[in-house]
Amino acid sequence: MTQHKSRLAQQQYEFTSALRDPDCATTPAGVPQERLEVYRELFFNNVRGILESAFPVIHEILPSELSESLARRFFREHSSHTPEFPRFPREFLLWLEQRETPEAGEPPFLYQLALWEWTELDVLLDPVTEPQASDAMDDVLAQLPLLAPTLQLHAFDYPVHKISADFIPEEPLDAQVYLAAFRTPDEGIEFIELNQASAALVQIMLENPGKTGEEYLRALAELMGHADAEQLLGFGREFFNDLYQQGVLVGTLAHNQE
């Protein structure tokens, strides 16, 4: 979109470009160089500080020059459209996803690790309220099993939940790892590694809320190419009960057949 910019807008873009890009040669009219540097430092340190506290593992494992150059590029290149401060870190994730070239020397799991670290924050902030579920799990196949309302499930090529300064994976896993995060009733956060079948069941439940336990199991049998759905139904109650014990399920809602 090329439209005529007012003098005010010109002054503003000139100022912000000089902030976002420290190599930018123009110093805005009326602004002494040393005071421009004050602004550059304040703005960049603010962004960098927010990223550090939102992505502590990334901050811990990356050499500081690398995390600095990532933060600088992010601040220079990315237009963030999130006015709410607590959700600003998600913009870093979006930028990692959209940018065309990675930074030299960055680990191949950077995006996945950032996604996992953001998931923790996102789950804690989630505005959803806890449903009034019954804890009766005996008849789960005929009732509507309910997932923890804040639950998020992701599949990762790297064991992002184990990464630390002492453990930096170099190769992807042979098989993806399925990790769920959700808020507990006492407002803490729980992380759980799920096996492939449980992860598939949870994914089906996320995509199709409001079905009975039996319907979910039949969908799972179909997905997994199980010839014998009846056999799966036989294990079904135990299957759901394990998820309930882990907190992945919060209980059931009565199924009103009409």
Binding site: Q12, F15, T16, L42, V47, I50, S80, P83, F85, F88
Partner: peptide, 9 residues
């Protein structure tokens, strides 16, 4: 400036 800078200009 088309995106948020998260501080006051």
């Amino acid at each position: 400036d088309g995106g948020h800078l998260y501080d006051l200009l």
